[in-house]
Write a protein that binds this DNA or RNA. Structure first.
Lengths: 215, 215
DNA sequence: TAGATTGTTAATCGATTAACAATC
DNA sequence: TAGATTGTTAATCGATTAACAATC
């Protein structure tokens, strides 16, 4: 019997566990493609780069999906994680900032594979965007239209790839228009209400901190 | 009196502290540009997006730089952090993979500002690279030349932006050639010796994990 | 049944925060 | 001296790991 935490009851799962769940999900997808039917916590953990005991603890936050002595059904576990993560429906996302990084991310196929569709992009100066619209495969609007667009389309997730100076203002508009989760590639520290989640990917700091460990 | 841990004695600082030190360093740089001479832990912490008490704890791992009642000298603290982080010399870095993401990162100015210089790029098929060499400002070599180049030039840091299938093989060559720290943008989980440090930026997982928090 | 592997509790480890004495 | 702010210890919190009973 599979026990699933009800979608209605507010489940709180540690942020790090949530992050790893999406790693597990990707590994399971690969196993599905290879027609593997069953996997043990040991094997799945290894392919995700974690300890088996951590994997089992993580899954414990979500429910019970395994069979003792056998392991996990790849299909069942994958569906369960997708369900909890809200990955069962294609999630619309907007991209803000279409410079170097923004346009590279627009062409990155990994997001779509994960179940996301970037439906529109915004820039402070769309006429300056160097990549042809048909190359990007979506329209680039003036950032002044962003608030309305996001509200009208019920968009709840956004990716920010603007210069530091513009980060906070962009975030303010997104939040005011209903965005609940932001992936922030700008160096700006974003101040948002508690109920809004920000994942900050600080490229310069990631590289900078590596320097400590060399030589 | 400023006390600095000797460069010879092996200091071990938690990885998260090291990461935040590079945030502080960037904030201090901005203060320097504004000719601010002194800053309190409260103000510096706020601009880095952490609690003052955490900032002071982090600095405590490195030495004593403040003046009670007054705060920190921006110049002194900045130099101290640069010293500990090894940011006083321009650090040469190689980029592996010049696709969408790789070429965007090559044009990203944030790395250079932080004290890094990307001195060469490698790709499995340099003839396929879409961006003109003079636009990138550096040569793109065949990946088969990577090992020799890295060893010859004493390169100790690398950025990996290749497809998942190539990630591990690339890492193996880098490590064998003397690379000690890797910033990995490929989805691959890299197996490297303990003395090599990997920062993994998993774009799809960052976005994927946000999905849990919406609606 | 015997072997394998989960689910979960307890123990450990590390990181964050609060509090405050030291001291400019 | 009085006010401010650091440096550091102790308390709290959360996350990881080990261990093992439950059970297929």
């Amino acid at each position: 019997m599979v026990k699933l935490s009800s979608a209605l009851e507010k489940i709180d799962i540690p942020r790090k566990t949530v992050y790893r769940l999406s790693l597990y999900q990707r590994c399971l997808q690969k196993l599905l493609d290879q027609n593997v039917e069953t996997v043990s916590s040991e094997d799945l953990a290894k392919s995700a780069g974690v300890k088996p005991t951590q994997l089992r603890k993580d899954l414990g936050h979500v429910g019970q999906f395994g069979t003792r002595g056998l392991g996990y059904s790849v299909a069942t576990l994958s569906e369960a994680i997708s369900g909890v993560m809200g990955l069962t429906v294609l999630q619309p996302v907007v991209m803000v900032g279409v410079g170097n990084l923004g346009s590279a991310l627009l062409r990155y196929s990994g997001f779509r594979k994960e179940g996301f569709e970037i439906i529109a992009a915004f820039d402070a100066d769309p006429s300056q965007v160097k990549v042809a619209p048909d190359q990007l495969g979506l329209p680039v609007y003036d950032v002044r239209e962003m608030g309305r667009y996001v509200a009208d389309h019920g968009v709840r997730m956004a990716i920010i790839a603007v210069p530091e100076s513009a980060g906070q203002a962009v975030a303010d508009v997104l939040v005011a228009s209903g965005v609940q989760a932001i992936l922030n590639f700008s160096p700006a520290v974003l101040n948002v209400p508690d109920e809004v989640i920000v994942n900050h990917v600080d490229l310069a700091a990631e590289l900078g901190s590596l320097s400590f460990f060399v030589s």
